[in-house]
Design a protein around this nucleic acid. Structure first.
Lengths: 242, 242
DNA sequence: CGTCGGGTTGATAACTTTCAAATTTCGTGG
DNA sequence: CCACGAAATTTGAAAGTTATCAACCCGACG
């Protein structure tokens, strides 16, 4: 096998996958498409949705409000599914936009469903990943509702560290993060100016450094304590299910 | 058929269900159990989960933080599933607690899965409802992140109106709401004191009244405008899919 | 009665936003 | 390789929103 895809890598962390599972997973990837920042992949209200598996780059899902604000619900990174929900729901209720140049494979929904029927372990793994995604949205909600700016930012950046490590795009100590402070602000429910101040504070406290598109954890344990981060949450060694 | 159950009523709004679908739905309901406020239905970290269909009363799902705060992720009302996610995830990552005395039917997951295989329209309806629940969590996230206390509260109470009307527990003008201002505060990411002030303001603006466990919309259109509420979102007449 | 949980109100403090203005970074064309 | 302009980051000051603290009120209930 060549280099494992991010998705395969992620799923393998949940469920031990056979070669058959893996090749089935490969066959799900259809046309590879590219997108660039500034052009939505999915637009609010648009119907007739396609689902994708993200292969390269970051995207964000967001909603716009009448009062002019926007809230980023989640960022997706390689190995994540895009737009699965919109397909079910028939029409998208949010926008999806590339944060960086992006490559993604189309997924034919009927292929996915029949793959589920044929390879139940794969189905388990995908459902598991979907549940985790939902859990992350919930954690995000909790953070915005009940954590102050400092804890919230620390928690969010820690979570990304864990997600990226899972797909082989980061180490325990640092990762490449293409987000601007504006994007971070729209995700955290803060103003960009305040995000800047918070990042400075985290740096001055010796906890983490976000510079030049790279997040570095200067004091991992300190961060975890500050953010009340559940390490077990995204962090484990072998697959959970053998 | 006797009085339609809240769940049947809700699903029928999404998908036109046959008698066969409906009786299948009935058979999903197993042991009926009762719960009282103060005792968790589901406790964070607990494994070996059961899923339920809520028949009477309200419950809330919440997470506790190390800093002492708690965030209520969602309230569930009659017709909602409870703990479906926890079952998949093997262990619960949040708590579920009754807000009022509650009655709920256990659901055997294998029954649910085989019902899906036999009656695809029912499966569609349930998945649709699940997607809607997820969309509501996202909307909640957006509200907490980017709406001020007034808009946020108005939006939340409007959403409840729509949800309750869907299961026959409210009219366009008002509904019974058993939530204390403390509960509302923990859901909205505000302090109880501030919720009190916001409710007063909404009342003084002639928009809505929340008194004696009842929410009354005094100026529906005004509220919708203030909250930037998407009426189409939860509101429709016939089933979406015939 | 006395207590207790919920609601209400005022005063003050804390946190975050907004506005405005540097400063730095970075890609592009000269 | 340097200059230029646009975008992103940084900082200060002032304003706005929401939390916290401290009372007080009220109805339910033992």
């Amino acid at each position: 096998m060549t280099e494992a895809s991010p998705l395969a890598r992620k799923l393998a962390a949940f469920v031990a996958l056979s070669d058959e599972d893996l090749s089935m997973l490969d066959r799900l990837h259809q046309r590879r498409r590219k997108f660039v920042p500034g052009v939505d992949l999915v637009h609010q209200g648009q119907s007739n949705q396609t689902a994708y598996i993200l292969a390269k780059g970051w995207v964000c899902s967001y909603k716009l409000l009448a009062n002019g604000g926007r809230q980023i619900v989640d960022f997706q990174i390689p190995g994540d599914f895009l737009g699965l929900r919109s397909v079910l729901f028939r029409t998208a209720d949010h926008n999806i936009e590339p944060v960086t140049p992006v490559e993604a494979s189309e997924v034919i929904i009927s292929d996915l469903l029949s793959a589920f029927a044929d390879t139940p372990r794969l189905a388990t793994a995908v459902l598991w990943a979907a549940s985790r995604d939902e859990a992350m949205v919930v954690e995000h909600l909790v953070g915005i509702g009940r954590r102050n700016a400092l804890e919230r930012t620390a928690h969010y950046l820690l979570e990304f560290g864990a997600r990226l490590k899972l797909v082989g795009l980061g180490t325990k100590m640092s990762y490449a993060c293409p987000l601007s402070q504006y994007l971070l602000a729209d995700a955290l429910g803060l103003s960009a100016v305040h995000v800047n101040r918070v990042l400075r504070q985290l740096r001055e406290m010796g906890l983490l450094t976000f510079h030049n598109g790279r997040v570095t954890f200067d004091d991992f344990e300190g961060l975890v304590a500050l953010a009340d981060f559940d390490k077990a949450y995204l962090d484990h060694d072998g697959p959970l299910l053998r």
